[in-house]
Design a protein around this nucleic acid. Structure first.
Lengths: 205, 205
DNA sequence: AGAAAAATCATGGAAAAAGAGGATAGGAGT
DNA sequence: ACTCCTATCCTCTTTTTCCATGATTTTTCT
């Protein structure tokens, strides 16, 4: 029984590269590729691959959303996430959303084959780089912010002072200052600079 | 006379993809590939391609630097820059440093061939996306920072004060403060918060 | 209805950053 | 030789943030 493969990635070179790497492997069957999430979902309606290689960045939606969607509708499809090195922070999100493996785009043929075989055995596969990334304890849990705190956070990021925000929000400057203090606490930040960096990393600003 | 091609890119899938795309083209001769700038430069010492496809991100140095270097040493080599969509801001730098063309990694086989043929005629080739990018004056151009400024910027983002940075960098606090002032100017930021947000958006921190 | 969370306001002081104005020295490039 | 850039250092003043410690009112949830 051959392993049926499908890939969704908007970079033609990547899809061609994988195809070239795997086309001489007798155990692999190449079903085809898609350049965006929509086309991928349409394909899945009439044929299901065993393994779906998925870029985390797609033109119409994030690979993370697509991953969850595919996993809900077609739980038998094993998903392997793909990304370049600078997007490693998305690994855990992909895995949370049902991906069974993760590869970087500079993976060798051998590594790709190993990844596919591993997930076919029902096990998880992480590239060494992805593994390193996951090892380090993720202290960067996004805190829960109140409506007002989000508002203040975003104004801070725009460069406004407490007095300016107070005027804009029709409250006193001390109120703004209190929200600000809570933000520093919630983000565990020493000062504004650390706060905004953390907030930026967590996509708040 | 065949067109001799060489590619330098640290993503195996990309090099394989291009090879697969072009290997059946009789006018193209595949010289090989390199995964980093060093290997590429070694190769060029004994054989020169007509066209060099070059990723803008390499493990040992930026494609931009490599581009300049190759252009100075081997001006006959026509360089085509390669990147994914989110790195478009480097286009003009590559072109400034001697690249004759620019392709995105989701280029089709047809586009790659067109690019190679165009630069072989001594003309510039830009992918449509790259062209769009160059057309619109990007107000959010990342400023050019000095080595020290980058250092200070990153320490600010970590939440350090001027005094702490001064100690760490073995300079006086006023020096750090000067770098800080220059950063505010270069990023056009009112204060630290705006600075860090801008820097985060431009991937400096 | 009652508890918890959120939003509001305050005082006073210490620490840090921002703004304005300099200066000196080395290196790269013209 | 000369300019520009980088990196270094300085003073003084004002503004802003950070810290500590409080409190009241409104909203939300159980």
């Amino acid at each position: 029984m051959k392993t049926k493969l499908f890939i969704v990635d908007d970079h033609f070179m990547i899809t061609e590269g994988i195809k070239a790497m795997l086309q001489n492997e007798s155990e692999m069957e190449w079903l085809g590729h898609a350049y965006n999430a929509d086309t991928c979902l349409s394909f899945l309606q009439h044929q299901l691959p065993d393994v779906l290689l998925m870029d985390i960045n797609l033109p119409d939606k994030s690979g993370i959303d697509l991953c969850r969607e595919v996993n809900e509708k077609y739980p038998t499809v094993r998903i392997i996430g793909l990304s370049t090195f600078n997007q490693l922070s998305f690994i855990s999100k992909m895995l949370d959303n049902g991906a069974m493996g993760y590869l970087l785009k500079n993976a060798t043929k051998q590594e790709v084959l190993t990844a596919i075989r591993t997930v076919m055995q029902g096990k998880n596969y992480l590239s060494p780089e992805a593994f390193d990334m996951l090892k380090k304890p993720n202290v960067e849990e996004a805190p829960t912010l109140t409506r007002r705190e989000i508002e203040v956070l975003q104004l801070i990021a725009e460069g406004m002072t407490n007095a300016e925000m107070a005027e804009k929000l029709f409250v006193s400057a001390t109120t703004v200052d209190t929200h600000r203090k809570h933000l520093l606490e919630k983000f565990n930040a020493k000062n504004t600079a650390a706060l905004i960096r953390a907030a930026a990393q967590m996509k708040f600003v």
